[in-house]
Amino acid sequence: MQASKKHKFIFVGDVVCEKKPHFSEELQNLLRSAEIRSCNFEAPIAGFGKPIDKTGPLVSQNSEAPQWMQELGFNCFSLANNHINDYGKEALLKTMDQFPKDEILGVGNEKDAYSLNTKTIDGVSYGFLAYGENGYGALNGDREFGHAWVNAKRVNNDIQEFKKQVDILIVQIHAGVELLDVPIPEWKERYHELIDLGADVIIAHHPHVVQGIEEYKGKFIAYSLGNFYFDYPSNHPQWNTGGLLELIFEEKKLSAFKFRLIEKKGQSVELKDETNSNNFINPLSERLKGKDYEEYVNIKAVEDWENHHASYYAKPFNGLADYSLGKLLKHVKRSIFNREVNHNLIWHNLFIESNKWLVERAIRIKTFGKNRS
């Protein structure tokens, strides 16, 4: 009897290129060994469109970035993310045009953004989808062109129907609390729900740091692969450390996986050894199962409220969350020069799921204490 063929897929996290990446020989060889090599292409190419009115940074990348990533071996690109619409429809269309149409996921008009991308390898059918959380580019009723929204009403039914069409259904999701090394319970529950509906693999990114890996009902979830190559300034110690995920499929199911750390140094990207990688990812994965997991999230939610969100909620109305000298001076400046309500910031706080859920958690704790809902 002929042995079944194995198929190797590789996934990495967020990509923003100002300069051309240089991969180590080991990384190049690993990419060449896989049939599918996927990344999250985080922002449109520069030089097109106009900046949209939004809260937070506007990000673009070198106009040659799509060519660079294809030359380096990538052949599957998730574009469903919070920066892909930063310069509007024109820039997004120009970016999409830089890739083969059958290699991009999660963007366009509603029909295209929510459509299933299928690949058949040795008679095994694989389906690929990409979604992002709510945001200024999400297809949430505010626009007709952008990225697929993971909590759109159609998604649950889509997952069920798409699973009927393929042997393996792989879903990438751009969501989560930035710079938090665990997923918040609300995202865990949503990803579990998508597995229950038919997804076989969920691979997530957006927090810019690596989060843990979980097996749920025999299926696989990677909660965040962090940054792969992100040319954007940050002082965070893990900004240039990300995850590379090898998935091995055999007999129409996931038979093995391997997590490897990658490190970006300037323009160079190299793989860390397996021992280093396992020592990094295992504690993050164990924390998801630990009895202190939710308490850890609660602590981080309150910290984030006190360090960031309290000011965010005060700022739209030119209010104050604390009375430090610096905040008072900024308040005086805003009161004189900008007395308008910042509706964009209010929208950002109320409708982007990660922000909303984290704030709700912090307010419950500060109001009722950690032991009451």
Rank of each mutant, 00 (worst) to 15 (best):
Q172W: 05
I173C: 11
I173K: 00
I173R: 00
I173F: 00
H174D: 14
A175H: 10
G176Q: 03
V177P: 00
V177K: 02
E178R: 01
E178L: 01
L179P: 00
L179V: 03
L180N: 02
V182R: 12
P183Y: 01
P183Q: 06
I184M: 03
P185L: 02
P185Y: 04
K188G: 03
E189H: 06
E189F: 05
Y191P: 01
Y191H: 14
L194M: 15
D196H: 05
D196V: 04
L197A: 09
G198S: 09
A199M: 09
A199F: 04
D200K: 05
V201D: 12
I202R: 10
I202W: 07
I203E: 13
H205Y: 11
H206N: 13
H206K: 07
H208T: 00
V209W: 01
V209Y: 00
V209P: 00
V210L: 11
V210R: 14
V210T: 10
Q211E: 14
G212A: 03
G212V: 02
I213A: 04
Y216E: 01
Y216L: 04
K217R: 06
K217V: 03
G218L: 10
G218P: 04
K219E: 12
K219S: 08
K219G: 05
F220Y: 12
F220C: 11
I221G: 08
A222N: 11
Y223C: 08
Y223H: 15
L225Q: 09
L225F: 03
L225I: 12
L225G: 06
N227L: 12
Y229H: 09
Y229T: 07
F230V: 03
F230M: 03
D231P: 04
Y232A: 03
S234E: 05
N235M: 00
N235L: 04
N235P: 03
H236K: 07
Q238Y: 12
Q238M: 09
Q238A: 10
Q238T: 07
W239Y: 14
N240C: 02
T241H: 07
T241D: 03
G243T: 10
L244T: 13
L244D: 15
L245F: 11
E246H: 09
L247D: 01
L247Y: 13
L247M: 15
F249W: 07
E250P: 03
E250T: 12
K252Y: 04
K253D: 13
S255N: 12
A256P: 01
F257E: 09
K258H: 11
K258W: 08
F259H: 12
R260M: 08
I262W: 02
I262H: 01
I262C: 06
E263R: 09
K264E: 14
K265F: 05
K265E: 15
G266A: 12
G266S: 10
Q267R: 15
Q267H: 09
S268A: 07
S268W: 05
V269R: 01
V269N: 01
L271V: 09
D273S: 11
N276A: 14
N276Q: 14
S277P: 04
N278M: 15
N279S: 12
N279P: 02
F280E: 06
F280L: 03
I281A: 07
I281T: 09
P283R: 10
L284P: 08
L284H: 05
